[in-house]
Design a protein around this nucleic acid. Structure first.
Lengths: 214, 214, 214, 214
DNA sequence: CATGAATGAGTATTCATTCAT
DNA sequence: GATGAATGAATACTCATTCAT
């Protein structure tokens, strides 16, 4: 614990050359993560792949975890761009259509870099620094909760937090598992079915009359 | 190897000693996995924790993965006992009650050894030998599919495989996430709510009229 | 040095069962030496191959080297049988014919178990105990020297020890190298040529007039 | 990897350090091979003997064999320098004188580092990378064959390949065995006798009329 | 700033040998 | 006698990290 280094890059690369080095390192890390897996992603290998000396790597990243964190960060931002967009579209739609948009966006998001997503999800330890995968979850979580609040008249839930948990967890799991383990489900034509069923699951749930009339 | 003589006592005696060693190793592995995480679970450390020499470890486990596999195996069997039991109970119940039983069982199963389950799920690479975490999933999957078939008259789905995917993935994710990341949801009283909502989600979905009337 | 164990078997296996065990072990060692090489010939593996417990192995052989020594011993005795026979035949022949017999015998000897001979010659360290490969050399050496003495009238050498060294070393090297590295030279027909040339080399040398007339 | 800047001084400076490390490792390997034998030459021990960390060892040598290969390489080059020189001198001499030169050179070559030569010849497994001990043999072989071709008029052999085999194998064995096992033969005065006898053996053989007049 | 040589604790695994049963 | 469980020192090799140049 005590010695746990920081996750943030040591210096904000104001100079172009520095920024280029940082980018090269993050990209190299992602590439190696995908190509060789987490266990074979050594700092020396990453530096070599990036065409940068190991010394320079440590100029910008204080430790190995910081590199992985940067990759995750970048990936999350890409996911977020899609998910954010979907929430904006969904805002003005009736629940059923809105949920359909969100589910489709979730699949699309997982498809950005499925191999990387898979390594990040299945091999990369969540220890300490790396917990920021969850940052994404958390932010999706609060977006969804706002969404529910905004459509409270159309939904029959009384515990908003619980409903959010149910919906976000299910959508994430369904789309994640489909992309990672059941790619057959995403073939031309079948993908729509999946979206449809997931929408039925979630929208159906939301439209159910609230349990506690009392 | 060499042909065992008939003196069962000797043989049994030695086997007891061996069984004790094997058990100590598997338990030590589980303990270390939980306490220190997968990455710090080295064979030497495990042997030491088990109070056994490193040589003995390799007498019974051909490689590091085999140890983890044994832990997973044991854990899976415990999960299975619970899940199996729940399916048997659910069989004769109407869908709503049945699903409620299954959801409750899923939570119960995750509670057996939540810390271990977490390490196994989040840190342990799925490579090679270790893929048998999925054996559990697969078997839960086919149990659920059979369940749906048996209750076809009460459910409105037409694609059984897809419905199974939706339900199993959701239940697994909800119970797993609740146990691992939202233990607050399982406090006295609140746990029932979670079961109730999850049941509403799944049972509600199953009872929806089939999409394709055509 | 100090701890160097003995090479001789711990007990002379008077009982049949014991002799059988010893034989099984020596044979297993030879088999593994050939099949897997010296480096992979562990005592546990040998015991298993022999169908004997590792405990029994150490009952009869004080250490690993003793096993190898026994294999070498056995191999040497087989070589010796052939070489001895050849010397007996050669004794009554004129030099040229005698040498031809000896060369042919040397090839024949190397052909008994070429693979084993190869492992023994190329992989098995000559350290300590195992030097008894040289016992064979030494004994061939003195047989040859006696042979030269007996045929002194036909040979033109004056330094018998030197001449023996020249002849034995050459014959051994030629036949050994041919069998081990130039098996093409021993194909049907060509083998005779090799014998002929080696005989010309050695017999020609012996028949040269002595250098030092003084 | 990363593009080297133009400041040769820096680059050269670091290269010097590296070269020093590599040299220290090769020398340490040779020293340990001689002092402790092949089996005790572990990478850790070599690094320690070289006064270098084990990590540095693996920076320059990909595996243990590569170290031994480097030692062999170096040794071979030294042998080769001598042998090559001898062939050049021998070229213009009559057969008898030429062979005498070659035999003397062979002894001289074996005397460069007899203890190392011995370990390399008797303990070092010929597997894989290490086969380049034979590179030397092979090259001596073809040099000798060229020599015979150039002096065809003075020699009575008809099968050049066979004659080369006979001569090279014998000379190698005689000089090797004398240096390694019969150092008494190389004492002041006696060495000449050995050269003389070996020369009689080989030159005598070459000058014999060809077998097949038919 | 960048480089890359150097570090050394740490890893999985093997194997000759002992000894209680 | 025979067994085989247990031992632990030793091995080859990796990798995050530092620091002199």
């Amino acid at each position: 614990m005590a010695r746990k280094p920081l996750t943030t890059p040591r210096k904000t690369a104001t100079q172009d050359r520095a920024r280029h080095t940082v980018d090269a390192l993050v990209e190299a890390t992602a590439r190696i993560l995908v190509r060789d897996g987490f266990d074979r992603a050594s700092t020396n290998r990453i530096a070599e792949e990036a065409g940068v000396s190991i010394g320079s790597l440590y100029q910008y990243f204080p430790c190995k975890e910081a590199l992985t964190a940067a990759v995750i960060e970048r990936h999350n931002q890409q996911l977020m761009a899609i998910v954010h967009g979907a929430f904006q579209q969904a805002e003005t739609e009736p629940v059923e259509t809105g949920i359909r948009l969100l589910v489709a966006a979730a699949i699309e998001a997982h498809r950005i870099a499925p191999a990387l997503h898979c390594v990040l999800a299945e091999q990369t330890p969540r220890s300490g620094v790396l917990a920021n995968v969850e940052l994404f979850q958390r932010s999706a979580y609060s977006l969804f909760q706002s969404y529910l609040e905004a459509h409270r008249d159309q939904v029959g839930v009384d515990d908003l937090d619980l409903a959010t948990f149910i919906c976000v967890t299910s959508i994430e799991a369904l789309t994640h598992t489909a992309v990672i383990h059941r790619s057959d489900m995403l073939s031309e034509g079948r993908a729509d079915e999946l979206v449809e069923e997931a929408t039925r699951l979630i929208a159906g749930y939301l439209k159910l009359p609230a349990r506690r009339a009392a």
